[in-house]
Nucleic acid binder design. Structure first.
Lengths: 192, 192
DNA sequence: ACTACGACATATCATTGTGATATATCATAG
DNA sequence: CTATGATATATCACAATGATATGTCGTAGT
């Protein structure tokens, strides 16, 4: 029955609590701001917006706003209330599904070099993320240095930083483990 | 068109590459072994098993095996080949959707105490995970100390350890940030 | 001998989300 | 004046979840 606990609707409601926006705007907001830890696809945004409108949690603003085919939604007081109520609930434990770990678990079936490549690529990706986080933090503090919500934004950024650093560290350890595995398997082949 | 790239089918194929198993067995395997980083639900396991059987990547073994309504599947050589091919492909970057971060991003709308509670609970959960990982590592090295794939299993465990440690560290930093926020907001209320 | 319970086993379904693609408009650079 | 790229909404097949239904079997307790 409970069809109102989807977190997506609250991500959208949250975006609208910052400023009125169209589905397209929300997608771009999701891609930039909260995009580091939250994704929304058009496939959910537009249906959810209509649903929220039916429930009077958001209001489509009048008329074609630009001449464009643009529907801008604004959050209603009821919507803000719903958002606050959701914020009170304990967040769900995030589902954790890692394909690289799944492959590593079964990696005995292929050459160790394969895993080395995968781990190296992952390491690079996380390092790129780290530089992105640093840039975002810089711009954020410059442009919104006194915004009252800045501390919260920095907390989410800090999460990403810790996470990526941990993954890089893990990559290093894993690469050295894999190197050892390669050595011993070469020894075996050599002694045959 | 490409309907053969679902990772779930390879998780199942991987499980069957260890030993023949029923859908129920696979679910239990997923819940224990790879369960720390991979979940499978009955809703995918049974349909996928049938699909894999149609594609001759697995073979249902003959007859009711126990008197029970049990269908045990074994991987075929073609299935092992498909598994190895999948292992060669670069793993997808794991989708990262964190509800606690989403709530934190919008947490300015509610009292800081709310966020404190959420973060504390998360910290406890990660600490519980860490003790679990330690136990699993212990049992694994005791019971399969010389298993050739043990190093790979330990790599996946090590990932979980790094990740949870990073989250605990983040929780500590976040809790102290939140404490500061509470102080300053009390000051404001006091000076009014 | 009976029965309640928990483990075993498969199946199904509504809901949620993704990612790709289709369609169309508008601004602007060449 | 036309090609391109940003803006904007919509749709769909596919994937996955998680809850629930249905039933069997072994066995512990009475």
């Amino acid at each position: 029955m409970r069809s109102n606990d989807s977190s997506s609707r609250f991500a959208i409601l949250g975006a609208l609590s910052l400023r009125p926006a169209s589905g397209y705007d929300i997608k771009r907001f999701a891609a930039s701001s909260i995009g580091h830890f939250w994704n929304e696809s058009y496939g959910s945004i537009y249906p959810i917006l209509k649903k929220l409108a039916r429930e009077k949690l958001v209001q489509p603003q009048k008329g074609p706003q630009n001449g464009r085919d643009r529907v801008v939604y604004a959050i209603t007081p009821r919507g803000e209330q719903a958002l606050r109520e959701w914020l009170l609930q304990a967040p769900r434990t995030e589902p954790f599904r890692s394909e690289i770990l799944l492959k590593l678990f079964f990696a005995g079936r292929v050459a160790a070099e394969i895993s080395v490549t995968h781990v190296q690529e992952r390491k690079l990706a996380e390092q790129r993320r780290l530089t992105t986080y640093a840039q975002v933090e810089n711009e954020l503090t410059k442009q919104h240095g006194s915004h009252p919500e800045l501390p919260y934004w920095l907390m989410t950024l800090n999460y990403g930083r810790h996470r990526s650093e941990a993954v890089v560290e893990w990559c290093n350890e894993t690469l050295s483990s894999l190197a050892k595995l390669q050595k011993t398997s070469k020894q075996k082949r050599g002694s045959k």
